[in-house]
Design a protein around this nucleic acid. Structure first.
Length: 141
DNA sequence: GCCAACGTTGGC
DNA sequence: GCCAACGTTGGC
């Protein structure tokens, strides 16, 4: 079994980690993605895959851990069959949120999508990057 | 199928 | 709030 990790970006003014956590086990459908690369990433997700929850625009930090709770399916917010969504649910807080600044300052994370593909809203994260960001954030595995 | 125009994202 | 980067659209 290959481990897969992801990163979900959200503007806290639109959908924050607090709101995501409030959804609890039910989770939330990650709708509104209108980018092929991001969609393809969602299509590659499997139930139980883990992801970081990143606050863009405000905060600019990884604040939480989520897991995939529903496989990709038609995005209900559009009629356009090109767009899919997945379900994600909050798993835990990142005790010490990892800022974009800290990520950029860490040579081990120089190839992270957050650094290289800043605008991609759903990104893959390598196992090594996952470990490193968890370590920085004080997340116990 | 190229590429200019346009719209959006997101860091600063 | 600005603006650079970049993905998407649409005319040709």
């Amino acid at each position: 079994m290959t481990e897969q990790y992801w990163l979900f970006k959200s503007e806290p003014s639109t959908w924050s980690w607090e709101q995501q956590k409030a959804k609890g086990k039910a989770g939330e459908t990650w709708t509104g993605v209108r980018n092929y690369q991001a969609r393809n990433n969602m299509r590659a997700m499997k139930i139980g895959d883990r992801g970081f929850f990143y606050h863009s625009n405000e905060g600019l930090e990884v604040v939480g851990i989520v897991e995939v709770s529903a496989l990709s399916h038609q995005d209900p917010t559009t009629e356009d069959p090109r767009w899919d969504c997945v379900g994600i649910r909050a798993v835990e807080d990142v005790p010490q949120p990892v800022t974009l600044k800290a990520i950029k300052a860490n040579p081990k994370l120089a190839d992270m999508s957050l650094v290289t593909s800043m605008r991609l809203s759903v990104q893959p994260v390598t196992p090594a990057e996952w470990q490193e960001v968890c370590r920085m954030g004080g997340v116990k595995n």
